[in-house]
Design a protein around this nucleic acid. Structure first.
Length: 428
RNA sequence: GCGGAAUUGGUGAAGGGGUUAACACACCGGUUUGUGGAUCCGGCAUACAUGGGUUCGAAUCCCAUAUUCCGCCCCA
């Protein structure tokens, strides 16, 4: 039977998985330092969880949802982004309960799915890393989220990133702006693309996102949200900007920034990376913002929230260029070669003793010739080779060779118990 | 969802209708058998993405399908 992975999926092979582990470990440690704890939610949800939260007219819902009917006739979708499932869990599992400390801070690292035409850096199954903070409407919560995003990228070694900021105001602002857009576009209806005609009904904000040439000509003169901010929204945005200034975090205000999902309500942001060796133009690797009504949308209590998501594949692509140290193979500490009658059990015993001390140790289960064992030791990048022959077993000696320079050292079996110290006797 | 290009062994690939599919790297074995990364010798695709078709004959031509890559849309 000929097997092939489904379109748009990838295998992360052992040569690559090590760097993924390292990156994820850095992320987990970082999140925990800020007291964000992990949340794990299902890979699939009822279709409505995503369609309602992301917006019926969003591209994600209109054409990228990986959905199907299961054997029980339920309309299911694989998650296209991380936030909706977390919000669903927040409501369903009653994390809004007073005994849960607020804000409730969570992070996730998970597979995400979009039914799209694959390309480099775009897959049907990919990985998203994100954080969400529930319960605070204070601008400091927005700042904390942005600061974490900023510091995380810095800690990972990402360079040349630029923080883009915009605000969608609050409910009143959105309503006024919505009306302004409708008033502006309605007379032009006949000249808009079919997509935008539909958007005009359902979500005029998304017309601004249109790349259709037919629509483009009208966008420049369309109302700008910045002109519709009321005092409260303006004050809120200004507070955020002021704090970022005081913290020395650089940003650019981007009035055209409209994120692809409909649930955002206040500040929205993207971290874009420019690296000509990867992408022609700037690419977003992290995006997020405030979404104050999603919890209510799912019949939970009025709960402000803010968060961000990172595309792990894109992050890895950038890190491969910008932080190659994460992609080196450190190899193992000891490779034990053995030759001669009755040496294999002692080999296993030594391996176990060394592993118990935390060393990475391997021996040749194929029991090939000594030369072949040495070759294998080279190939797995072993630092030291211990050679165990009948002579060594008899005399209880340990013959150690450092592959890097060929220097050798003879120890006793009893020295194994404290290898860290004894190996240091090998002089340079 | 639309447009374009590709697909030969573990890898990089040559070959553009004629019958042992070149070469290189990697790997395996040997180089007199207890010490690696060198040299030398030998081995390594009944097979050219899959399925049809044209032909006396196809990896080479045609069609379909699959996958990958590039661009658009959009995004992570």
């Amino acid at each position: 039977m000929k097997v092939q992975k489904p379109k748009g999926t990838v295998d992360i092979l052992p040569d690559q998985s090590g760097s993924w582990e390292k990156v994820e470990q850095i992320l987990r440690d970082f999140f925990k330092q800020a007291n964000y704890r992990e949340i794990r939610t299902p890979s699939f949800e009822n279709y409505e969880v995503f369609s309602r939260s992301s917006g019926e007219t969003s591209d994600v819902v209109e054409k990228e949802m990986y959905d199907f009917n299961d054997k029980g006739g339920r309309h299911i979708a694989l998650r296209p982004e991380g936030t909706a499932g977390v919000v669903r869990a927040y409501v369903e599992d009653k994390l809004y309960a007073p005994e849960v400390v607020k804000p409730l801070n969570v992070y996730y690292i998970e597979s995400t799915f979009r039914y799209e035409r694959p390309q480099a850096g775009r897959q049907r199954e990919f990985h998203q890393i994100g954080i969400e903070s529930f319960g605070s409407d204070n601008p400091l919560a927005d700042v904390e989220t942005i600061v974490l995003a900023h510091d995380l990228l810095a800690k990972l070694g990402v360079k040349n990133y630029e923080l883009h900021l915009n605000t969608l105001g609050n409910e009143e602002v959105r309503q006024n702006y919505h009306d302004a857009l409708v008033n502006y576009f309605e007379p032009l209806r006949d000249q808009l693309s079919d997509d935008s005609k539909r958007r005009l009904e359902k979500n005029p904000l998304r017309i601004l996102d249109s790349k259709d040439e037919q629509d483009q000509q009208f966008l420049d003169d369309a109302p700008k949200i910045i002109d519709y901010l009321n005092d409260e929204a303006k004050e809120n945005f200004d507070k955020i900007l002021a704090m970022l200034n005081q913290l020395g975090i650089k940003y650019v205000i981007d009035n055209d920034l409209v994120r692809g999902l409909d649930y955002y309500t206040g500040v929205i942001f993207e971290f874009m990376v420019e690296d000509k060796s990867i992408w022609q133009s700037k690419s977003t690797i992290l995006g997020g913002g405030r979404y104050n009504h999603l919890v209510e949308e799912f019949d939970g209590p009025d709960t402000p929230a803010v968060g961000f998501g990172i595309g792990e594949e894109r992050l890895m692509l950038v890190l491969q260029k910008q932080n190659p140290a994460l992609f080196t193979d450190e190899g193992i500490d000891f490779f034990i070669t053995n030759i001669g009658e009755g040496t294999e059990i002692k080999t296993v015993e030594i391996a176990r003793a060394l592993r118990k001390q935390g060393f990475k140790v391997q021996y040749d289960v194929d029991q090939k010739k000594l030369k072949a064992q040495f070759k294998k030791a080279d190939r797995v990048h072993a630092k030291y080779v211990i050679t165990l022959g009948e002579k060594e077993v008899e005399n209880e000696t340990l013959n150690i060779k450092r592959l890097q320079d060929g220097k050798t050292l003879d120890l006793k079996f009893s020295d194994i118990e404290n290898m860290q110290e004894n190996i240091a006797k090998l002089k340079d």
